[in-house]
Amino acid sequence: MTTTLSSPISKSKTVKVDLAKYRDQILPPIIGIVGFLLIWQILASTNLIRLPGPWDVWMDERSRYLILHPLYRNSDLDQGLLRQTLASLQRVAIGYCSAGLVGIALGILVGSSVWMNRALDPIFQFLRMVAPLAWVPIALAALRRNEPAALFVIFITSIWPILINTAVGVRQIPEDYINVSKVLKLSKTDFFFKVLLPSALPYMFTGLRVGIGLSWLAIIAAEIVMSGVPGIGFFIWDAYQQNYVTEIIVAVVYIGAVGLLLDRLMAALQAKIASR
């Protein structure tokens, strides 16, 4: 008797918990997004801003085609948005990975040697302050072709947070760990792989996470400026030239989504590797 009585009670409890979770976790973002779209639509239809509202984006033939056909391909420069995004991401992958390798290596060097730090820190601090867009003409002048110049801009933009965070991580190895390795007379390689690297790892990941966001920002800017390469940045520029504002809006949604995805990816990686 008791079992038949108790089971419906517990069931209703779990339902309640799920409801509560739904209410606390999922509802607020939905309300936020719907509210945002609503306000945007109102602003657009009352002509307070001269932008098409979300409804207009959906109703516009060109942009609807883009939304519904992300993978079409007519020519190098006329492709579906997913293809464009992938082309940009490829560039980011190359530029960002080389920035990661060089940044971590330089960061360890600067972090573990006071002398090197003194020699290089002013240069780093100086270069760090140069905006990604300012690198574009320099890169074009130096490398003469669009593709390597774009990679360089991504590289130079995303390397600084990686480098500086790694250096800090290396410098902040707890005194205790250093003392232990001194007392144990650990070999250089043992010290590097067993103490230095794991200890600086959380800092490196912080740098890498900031870096990937920056590199995504940089690629859009770079593609807009150096026309003629397939990619989502150039797509926006092209659409602007032809005054397809609804297309730009669809592309922007793609950009935001990819940026968010990249950051989440790095966060997950960071949690997995550096949490120990």
Binding site: D176, V180, V183, K185, V195, S199
Partner: peptide, 16 residues
Amino acid sequence: APGPDRMVVFQHYSLL
């Protein structure tokens, strides 16, 4: 110089 013949146990354990 430090060496393992004089092993130290630190207050904050200093385990990796």
